[in-house]
Each structure stands twice: as structure tokens, then as C-alpha cells.
Design a protein around this nucleic acid. Structure first.
Lengths: 248, 248
DNA sequence: TCCTGTTGTTAGCTACCTCTAACAGCAGGA
DNA sequence: TCCTGCTGTTAGAGGTAGCTAACAACAGGA
């Protein structure tokens, strides 16, 4: 009950070491400097000073040249980091359908920064999904069906309710390229894939963003839009991929 | 098209500076060292060397004692970071319903680490939610209804399909406390809130985790369970809150 | 016993990022 | 004109974290 408070502000690096020690002990029974270095992809010379710090904090048992062990407080801290890692990985791969390797890498990078609150919400998300199969997994199935197909065919599968869309919605299927200078719209969908999609996302062209056409080049091709107080220019091919609806 | 490649590996700190400059210029027209220091909550003496680095990288225009501006490449890099920040904030607050301040803080911490792939998936999530209102937002409404009530009453609202549950499901509403030593189960739900919930999550008691009762103290109160290869002990009050189903 | 290879420690270096404190440039007021 | 205060720069120090290279401890084989 006091151990969590006993390890107040570990650095990301020390948290990583702790997590690594936990996993090495779990998998190999004992943890040596060498194992930790290999698992963390650092040199052995970097491990020793980290072990000293963790020992000073009372999180590991460490005697020169001996096996390394976790104290109860260290075990608790390690498990805390690991559980964040696990929930992030599950969320990224199962809900967002990110490839296992990338999910793992992202989880590693983010596990040190996520708040208790976000952690808790992700868990609730899983609880809901598992306990409401008729709604929860149905939603996810639709989402994954839509978004996967989206990446290839740019249209929803036949079992998706919005495949045809309501008349109102169908009428609203305009792109940024259809707007006149001075007109505004709200980004609904980035209807393309690959490098162009990534470029649009990187520029901040995200769902719900309000955009306004500032001016159009004489040739009609590059258009300038205002987005969150900044002006950016888009090629016609990019603008056509940005589906919008009216501002409300 | 080449600017994104021109800023290959900015440190998290430099990305933050770039993002700050972008926002300061957007809000105040010009950016001075003082403004940046204040926005990033660092001292002015820390800003100057960072500006030199960014200028060396060709991302900002910087002359000693003059206003600071973004080059096209710098603007692109800043927008890239900012768009990550925005999508993370939206996702955390709208989908996971995390409070605005925490969502903001988490987004700040994670924006430097998230992959293109995860970013893209979050955007797709929003696109789906917005374009499939009959399914998408319905799911989210149910999730938020369930999970909010969950935090207070521990039961689903009357409009939630799983409120009563199927007979099969109702029969499976056992907790860890109902298992005998040697028996296993799969965690389905953490049926409690506050500190106990947080403690269970921190220990790695997460949905879908397989747990096995190792032994029970003579008094019956602390029980030891095996979880992902490690043994941890739970108080009865904690074990009762962990709802499980059979391993399949 | 000595040799050798593995393992772990140490020292010295680099890089990043921040701070404080002293100092420089500049503008406005007395 | 000089003084004063705001702003920005610089130098020095401290913390983290990684590396390399030299060295120490130890075990097993010849």
C-alpha cells in the first residue's frame, strides 16, 4: 500500500530497466546484467549505473556481481509499468488494429507517459466490449470492416449501414475542391490512402477541422486554405480527397 | 514534399519548441524568446540554444535579438506535431472521455512517440464514427453510458442491451473469490472503483488476463494468484471485485 | 597451475536539456 | 546625457543516459 508512493518519479529509463528485469526474471528465473543489456539493447556498461540507482531507491536487490532481484516495492512498480504496456498494446492492436510490431513499439514509447485516467478508460473500453457483445464487438467489426475496406476500395462493405447513406448524407458528399473562395466547411473524411493521406493528416487536415478557402491560383490548381488560424496550400489532387460537410 | 524528410529526427524537446513557436505566432503574430519561454514554462536562458539548433536545422528563421519565424520546412514539421497532438486530444477526450486537462497533458507527453500508423487509425476511427451515425455514435453512447454508470452504480443503464444479460452470461458472473486453489479464469471486469480498482489495474489484473488461484491463506483472506507467470497476493475485498469467466 | 573467455565494473567522454547568474543591447524617461 | 528596466545572450554547473575501452573477477579447460 505504500510501495506505489515509495517510487514517485522514476525516469522513463529506470522504468524501462525495472520492466526489463521483471520480464527477464519471469522468463529466465534469474536476471544478470548481461541479460538486461541484451533485452534493452544497451551495452553492459550502461546497465551497472542504472542498477545502482534502482538499488538506492530500494526497488531491486543488487550486490556487485550477483544476480539481480526485485524488492516487493520494485515488483509493484514494474508491474505497474507492465500493465500500462499491456493495456496500450491491446488497445492499439485490437481496437485500432495496428500491426503487432508497431503496437509494441508505440506502447513502449507511451507507457511512461499515460495517465491513470487514460489507463482506466481503456480498461473500461475492453470491459464494455467484452460484456456487451451485441453492441460492442458489432461496432468494432463494422469499424474494422469499414476502415479496412476504406484503405483499399474507399467504400463501405455491403453490411455497413452507411454504405448507401441517407439522401441527406449522399447530397453532402462534397470535397474541398467544390468550395469557392470564402466558403467554409468541416472536414468529414480523408478519402485517399498512402502518402497523400499521410501528408494531409500531417498538415492538420483532420476530421472536424474547420477549413475555409482563402484563394485559388489562376491555373486553379494550388488552392490556399485557412486551417486553425494558419494558411496552407493544397494541390487539387489533395483537395479532392478531403470530403467535407457544411459548418453548423 | 521534401520538407518532411528534411527534419528526420528532432528530439522531443525541439519538437515542443517548434510546436510552441507555431502556436505563439498564430496567437500573437510574432514570436519572441520571452513568449516561448513563458509558453513552455522554461527560463529564457534555455530557449536561446534551442533556437540555434532549430535555425541550424533550417526550421526557423532566427537572428540574434530578432523575432523568430518558421521556415516552410519548420512550419510543416510544427504542423505535423500539432496534428498528432490534436488527434490524440480528440481521441482521449471524445472517445475515452478523459477530462480535458488530463487529455491535454497526456497528448503533450505522447505526441512525440506515436507512430504514423496509430495516428492514421485514430483518424479512421473518427471518420467511421462521423459517417456511420446509426452505428458509430450509438456504440460510443452505450459505452459512455455504461462506463459512466459503472463508475457509480456498477450496473448498466436500462437501455443497455446487456443490462440483464443472457442466462449464460448471468450464470458466469463469478468473481475471483469463488475459485478454488488450482482453478483458473479469465478476467472480464473489474467491478469496483477508486483506489482498489487502480491498484488492481496497476498489478496487471486487466480484462482477458488469465489468472489461477495458487493458494489461500489459512484465514482465507489473502489469496495468492498466478498472473502472467508471476505470483501476486490479493485481499478478499480485491478478489471479490474481479469478475471472471471460464478459460476457453 | 596457468591460460583464456565470459561477465561485470569503472572511468572518461559525448550529447541533451535545464537552471542560475552575469552581462549586453536597447529604448524610454528624467 | 545618463539611468533604468526589459529582453536576450552567454558561460558554467548539474542531472540523465548512452557509449567505448580498460580493467577486474571468476570459472573451466589444458
Amino acid at each position: 500500500m505504500n510501495a506505489a508512493a515509495a517510487a514517485p518519479d522514476l525516469t522513463a529509463s529506470l522504468e524501462d530497466y525495472l520492466e526489463t528485469i521483471y520480464e527477464v526474471i519471469r522468463d529466465h528465473k534469474v536476471a544478470r546484467v548481461r541479460d538486461i543489456a541484451r533485452a534493452r539493447k544497451v551495452k553492459a556498461g550502461s546497465v551497472t549505473p542504472a542498477m545502482k540507482k534502482l538499488a538506492d531507491l530500494g526497488l531491486i536487490t543488487y550486490e556487485r556481481r550477483e544476480y539481480i532481484g526485485l524488492t516487493p516495492a520494485g515488483e509493484e512498480a514494474a508491474r505497474r509499468v507492465l500493465s500500462r504496456h499491456q493495456i496500450l498494446t491491446s488497445f492499439l492492436s485490437e481496437v485500432l488494429q495496428i500491426s503487432p510490431e508497431v503496437a509494441e513499439a508505440d506502447a513502449c514509447a507511451m507507457e511512461h507517459h499515460i495517465s491513470d485516467e487514460a489507463m482506466d478508460r481503456m480498461v473500461r473500453f475492453f470491459e464494455f466490449m467484452r460484456s456487451c457483445p451485441d453492441t460492442g464487438s458489432d461496432f468494432l467489426k463494422r469499424f474494422h470492416g469499414c476502415s479496412r475496406i476504406n484503405a483499399e476500395l474507399r467504400s463501405c462493405p455491403s453490411d455497413c449501414a452507411h454504405r448507401g447513406g441517407t439522401p441527406k448524407r449522399r447530397a453532402a458528399a462534397r470535397s474541398l475542391a467544390d468550395l469557392q473562395p470564402g466558403q467554409s466547411g468541416v472536414v468529414r473524411q480523408i478519402n485517399t490512402t498512402g502518402a497523400i493521406r499521410q501528408r494531409l493528416l500531417d498538415m492538420g487536415v483532420l476530421p472536424d477541422a474547420v477549413v475555409r478557402i482563402e484563394r485559388v491560383a489562376p491555373a486553379g490548381d494550388p488552392i490556399w486554405i485557412r486551417l486553425r488560424g494558419y494558411q496552407i496550400s493544397l494541390r487539387m489532387s489533395e483537395a479532392k480527397a478531403v470530403l467535407i460537410s457544411d459548418t453548423h
